[in-house]
Write a protein that binds this DNA or RNA. Structure first.
Lengths: 226, 226
DNA sequence: ATCGATATTAATTAAATGTTAATTTTAAAG
DNA sequence: CTTTAAAATTAACATTTAATTAATATCGAT
């Protein structure tokens, strides 16, 4: 018996998920807010928790932190639900300890297969997590899996936006990303931030990883280069 | 040219969408009901169809099914329009094959960026195996995707105008572009710049990529040649 | 609720790019 | 071979765009 807890403030989504999961023989619990969700989780010890990122009272990211901090729950699988399609904002979710994320609109078949894959992976254990998948640029190593930046052997802590920015640029080394592209991918379609915000993040990034990696192409954008 | 079909029974919304989409250079078709919508879709084969879920005669969900069942239309992108309250109660609609949904009230900026994201995703998806899309002329490689010029393996950074100019010339190698043509394409019809401006940019370009690619046809214009 | 870290904004400075104008060179036509 | 219109070149100047900085706002952990 596999128990799944869904935490979302929209009743329609709860119902929709419950319907589809129960059709697959999962045992479903649900909660309409983070606090209730946490209580149920502690009581039922589900195998997987599906968390909406955007919720009133306590959002998904915060609840995730709580769960990861709880001795009985810390190893529970967590899948985030996010409205954004931009993958780099989802790094934030994974950074905080999520195991997967699913974007709305939710496709039942996708949902189910992702969940099954997660459960399978969990059971197999972390045996295959050994695969070292990092990128190396001179003295800079970028470990996408572990979300870790190492420079000259020293680990560097990047703030969230810095990390997202770096990951975006590094995803296609050499490619020039226009400001607009960066906005869309990192901030999302509907967020509007000022014009100089990117510059500031770029500067902080350069401060931390060194000036030689991120190049400005004036009038066009930025690129990661080595 | 990107064609978009809007199907909605409310004339106000049709007009509103048309205005905003045409402002973005999309070619817009519209229909006031599902049946007409389907007919237009079959005739025009649009790239994207925006469907109101709630409509008389044939609702959006039903039309979506029809579209997905039609050989010529089955891969067309579909975005649903939903009122906020019905948001997820109609989620079945997405299972039926919608690619996205947008909630009313519609914010133009959000609408546009969502649509562009969808189209981008579609194109990326159909490209599948990362087909390398560059042009090669002797020791010069032009990678439009990465906005990258490589000469003898060395990467060259071009300023914006230089890049635009090169891209224009390269778009039809061998064709002679008159000065007037170049002005119209790069500066636009209403901007007036002096006569020698092009020369200067041409010179800088030649300085960077080498003298052998851009030929002057005195009295007529310039061409990219190899 | 508070403190420290992170994110954003706004104002200023710096730098690269773009344009103009004056001058020299080129090449096509007579 | 000259003439002449067009293009190349050059350097000064203007404009645009990015970097920097400091101040303010927001977030998140305690």
């Amino acid at each position: 018996m596999v128990k799944i807890l869904i935490v979302d403030d929209e009743p329609d989504i709860l119902e929709f998920l419950r319907y589809n999961l129960e059709k697959e023989q999962f045992v479903v619990f649900s909660a309409g807010d983070g606090i209730t969700g946490f209580q149920i989780a502690k009581k039922e010890l589900p195998d997987l928790i599906i968390l909406d990122i955007m919720m009133p009272k306590m959002d998904g990211v915060e609840l995730c932190r709580l769960i990861r901090a709880d001795d009985h729950l810390k190893n529970t699988l967590i899948t985030f639900l996010t409205a954004r399609e931009e993958e780099y904002s989802q790094i934030a979710a994974l950074d905080v300890g999520g195991d997967d994320y699913i974007t709305k609109p939710i496709r039942p078949r996708v949902l189910i297969s992702r969940i099954k894959a997660l459960l399978r992976r969990k059971h197999k254990g972390s045996a295959e997590m050994e695969k070292e998948t990092w990128l190396e640029f001179g003295n800079l190593r970028i470990d996408k899996e572990k979300v870790m930046i190492i420079k000259n052997g020293e680990q560097i802590d990047l703030a969230r936006k810095e990390l997202e920015l770096l990951m975006l640029l590094v995803s296609k080394p050499g490619k020039v990303f226009s400001r607009e592209e960066i906005f869309n991918k990192i901030w999302g379609n509907d967020v509007i931030v000022g014009n100089r915000t990117i510059d500031v993040h770029i500067r902080k990034l350069r401060e931390k990883i060194g000036d030689d990696f991120i190049k400005t192409i004036k009038g066009i954008g930025y690129k990661f280069d080595f």
